[in-house]
Structures are given as C-alpha cells and as structure tokens.
Design a protein around this nucleic acid. Structure first.
Lengths: 108, 108
DNA sequence: TCCCTAAGGTTTGTGTTGCAAACCAGACTT
DNA sequence: AAGTCTGGTTTGCAACACAAACCTTAGGGA
C-alpha cells in the first residue's frame, strides 16, 4: 500500500545522509575497517567522521571498538542489524527509481 | 579520480533529500503535474510541499507556473537542466552501490 | 450585496542537523 | 622535553525540515 513516492517518507535519514551513505557502503564491502582508513576513502575530516560514526553507533548501525592500551586505534564494522538496514535502504531507493521509470498512469 | 566514496561529498543535497527525491522522481515520469496531484502521491502536507518546490525552483530543478485568473492552480515540471541533475544524481548513487558491491581491494 | 466556506498556497516559528575549526590527551619517537 | 600520530570532543553557526498559522481568490447561499 502507498506509492513508492509516499514510501520515501519512511526513509532512514540516519543512513541516507551522503557522508553516512559513503561510510556504510564502504563498510558493507568489508568485515571491518579502521578509523584512518575510513577517513582516507571518504575524505571526511576526523571530527566529522567521528560524529557521523557516533550517530551510526547510537542508531545501532555500526559497532565501534577501540584497543584500550597501546596507541589509539579504532575499528568499525557494520552490525548485522545495520547490514540489514543498509540493504533495505538501497532496495527502497531502487524501488523509487524503477517506479519513476515505469509509472505513466493516471495523472490528473 | 577519487573513490566513489569521496564522490558522495559532491552529492546534490537539494535533490537527495527524501521528499524531493520523491517529487523529482514523480515528475521525471511525466511532462508536468499539478500541486494537488504531487501532494496526493507524496503524502506531503501542502506547506511542506510548497517549501520543497520553492527550493527546487530556486535551484533551477523545476519550473512552476500558476494560472493568474480563475481558481488557484499550480503546475510543476522538471526543467531540462533539472532532468539532467536528477539523472546524474541517480548515476552517482548507482556508482556508489556498485562500488560497495565490487570493491574488495586493499583494506589494511 | 454580504457573509461563509473551501481550495490552494505562503509565511513564520522552532527544534534538529551538518560542518568547520578549535581544543584535548594518550602513546611513541627523537 | 619536544614533537607527532592517533582519535577523538566541544563549540559556534548557518541551513534545513516540518507543522501550524495565516493569507487570498472563487463560488454559493440568503
């Protein structure tokens, strides 16, 4: 029920935001990645990356682990739930795009 | 140059926002649509729809025309430039998703 | 003619974001 | 001791999304 257009209202803005879309996409192709690696491939500043990761963590999308002793080093991975949310998000986008392509019905 | 992840930084937030993604998608499948029609299929409130349309208009994505006399009636269509921006946006998203799928290189 | 209502928008107010820039702090190196 | 690398937090601000209040024109009834 509801057009794919209405469906967009339910989109998950947590994942949809461009920087976070980049982060989750990068993570979805690997088991885990560390902070500096994510920073390099996304081009984000560390402050920015840090706050995006905090939001993703709070939302249960990623898990963050730091090694307590030794040099600071942070490892990030998608949680199983996060992996699902990300997949669902892409499916929603795909549905919308396909609907836009195929949809020529009752306009008035 | 630059990974598709970095590429996301250049995403057009004007189009990327969920409601506007729905609006532009709906418009891309038809020549033009009127205000009430867009409101029905997107499920947006009129106030909200109005402000989204204003932003899209200011950004050159859509053209808005109103019939001066008679009952109020507003017609919206994608501009040629807007059609291009929207297409480019979807291509960028597709590139990102495909990259996430295919990309298993050098994760140190 | 004068209200009344409804359609179709626009404006305003408010809380939330995203971002840059500044600051902080532990561990190694020299 | 000084410097650098790592991984952050905090602060300040401008832009945004949304809801709710407001405005305007058209037509209907008395």
């Amino acid at each position: 029920m509801g057009t794919p257009f209405e469906d967009m209202a339910e989109i998950d803005r947590l994942v949809h935001e461009p920087s976070r879309l980049a982060i989750t996409s990068a993570l979805s192709s690997c088991e885990s990645a560390d902070f500096l690696f994510l920073q390099r491939i996304t081009g984000l500043s560390k402050g920015n990356l840090s706050s995006h990761l905090s939001k993703l963590e709070k939302g249960g999308i990623v898990a963050i682990s730091k090694n307590a002793s030794g040099p600071p080093r942070t490892t990030i991975r998608l949680t199983p739930a996060g992996r699902e949310v990300v997949a669902e998000h892409w499916e929603r986008l795909t549905r919308l795009r396909d609907a836009a392509r195929d949809w020529t019905a009752s306009q008035e």
